[in-house]
Design a protein around this nucleic acid. Sequence first.
DNA 1: ACGGTGACGAGAT
DNA 2: TATCTCGCCACCG
Length: 102
Amino acid sequence: MVCMSELFQRVYEIVARIPRGKVVTYGQIAAALGDPRQARTVGWALRSTPEWLDIPWHRVVNSSGGISPRHSIGGLNTQRKLFEDEGVVFNEDGRLDLERYR
DNA sequence: ACGGTGACGAGAT
DNA sequence: TATCTCGCCACCG
């Protein structure tokens, strides 16, 4: 058991709650934490997310409706595959319908 | 205490 | 529409 920042645990709980086939934006999680401006902090938490946690981080997207362009580089393929498994479909722009999957 | 950093968001150009 | 810049908050050395 590792004692990490509560913030991380908070994010972890929220992300873990994301139903299969749905996605959430960092801003949504931040708002759930109590401050919508903490979106960056959320990203920091997920970035620090150890792999031994089975959190569906791939269901977390940015306001663009896609995986963060700063990180998806090289791993976007895996991300898309996971979404396919979730039953999520991408738009022609390679983005998700936040209005539909949030 | 300070500065740099970061998987973001929204507005401006 | 794409790209840039600024702002926000939290962690690390």
